[in-house]
Nucleic acid binder design. Structure first.
Lengths: 207, 207
DNA sequence: AGACTAACGCAACTTTTGTTGTGTTAGATT
DNA sequence: AATCTAACACAACAAAAGTTGCGTTAGTCT
């Protein structure tokens, strides 16, 4: 076999990280985000990104494969930047701030279409799905601290599944956005957070 | 204006409901479901459905528009058939049965890909999104009775938002399926149901 | 029974999307 | 600074997706 990987098709050029390759990569990534913000996921095409970035379309096809590859790559970047974990002093306050962060992100005219595209792309390509999986694994990990603090305060029973609390706090928002088509308002975010908090307090999330 | 609707592009031919038109419609609908079950949403093409149904592709394009139109139409059918609302005697039992019903549906090799396609299609076309919206509005309506019974029993405070209880019970499953890529098992369904029940009991869902 | 016409089938065409072969460019290596 | 080669640009091509015009078929109406 003699395993050898002369190039990795998707994402950053590891073999030749400097100069032109990096410039092309950044141009394409920037164009991808811009196109997503303007036309949404459904309006994202390889040719559109190629034209906007000034990079030839064959180059984009070779390195990223298709439109979903572009999104998966953009998602990889997004997953590196952390988000502001709230610390309000109460679990309810923290979860509410978290839920509002999610809701506001999707409601934002600029950020919304991009975030939306990440989820939609995951439904289309395995690469995007894996990237999104890693993205959320990281977020759940980062968010766990709000539950740990609540345990330390004696607000919720020890052994409470932190990731599950966060899931229940944000899941109704995604459910409304991507399944039922009921765009969530602030009140919806607050209710979801309150429900997760109540469930955790009642000890329903101790496996 | 003189509003007149000579034909409705998507779905049942209302103008000429008998004979050939109906035969074509049923053949296409059947082929759509079969193709979805076999190849999933991503493998669904207009030409594939046309070939399988024996209907010419031009006809499919004209009546259904595109692949998402086919899914939207199939969804319209699915939303008419009711589902078995459980009655176990307790809110926790009812919600658990409901959540398991959802989970098992997606886990089923035949049913799963079709249900999955319904959600994915909603992310792609407005017609499918609206159809799915109606589908879930109906389901939430039908499911409300389990909460009403719990109120009557004195299990949860009066004024509890029934639809919201159901949303919280099933949302984590959809969240795992379509967002984080963590396929839910039975335990996940039970936890989600338990959390919704605990939140309702605590009075967190009384607006 | 005959006339009417919505809906369908068919073939040819256009557009969009994706691929392949080849020469060129510009970081990297010594 | 001379050499090497991964990565890119370009053009020409191939395949899939979608459209259009027109003749035909089969329910429907009188």
């Amino acid at each position: 076999m003699n395993a050898r990987e002369p190039r990795d098709a998707a994402g950053p050029g590891r073999v030749r990280p400097g100069g032109r390759t990096a410039r092309v990569r950044d141009a394409v990534r920037g164009a991808t985000l811009a196109e997503l913000a303007e036309h949404g996921y459904r309006g994202l095409t390889v040719e559109g990104v190629a034209a906007r970035s000034g990079v030839h379309k064959t180059t984009v096809y070779r390195r990223w494969g298709d439109a979903d590859g572009l999104v998966a790559d953009a998602l990889e970047i997004a997953s590196t930047e952390p988000w502001p974990i709230p610390d309000t002093g109460t679990l309810d306050g923290d979860l509410r701030a978290l839920a509002r962060l999610v809701r506001d992100g999707f409601a934002d005219p600029r950020e919304g279409p991009v975030s939306r595209a990440f989820v939609l792309a995951a439904g289309q390509s395995d690469a995007a799905a894996h990237a999104l999986h890693r993205f959320f694994a990281r977020r759940h990990e980062q968010s766990a601290v709000v539950v740990e603090r609540a345990v330390a305060r004696g607000d919720v029973p020890p052994g409470t599944d932190a990731a599950e609390v966060v899931r229940i706090a944000v899941a109704p928002l995604y459910y409304r956005l991507f399944v039922t088509g009921e765009p969530p308002d602030e009140a919806a975010a607050d209710r979801a957070a309150a429900a997760a908090c109540a469930a955790a307090r009642a000890g329903a999330l101790v496996p």
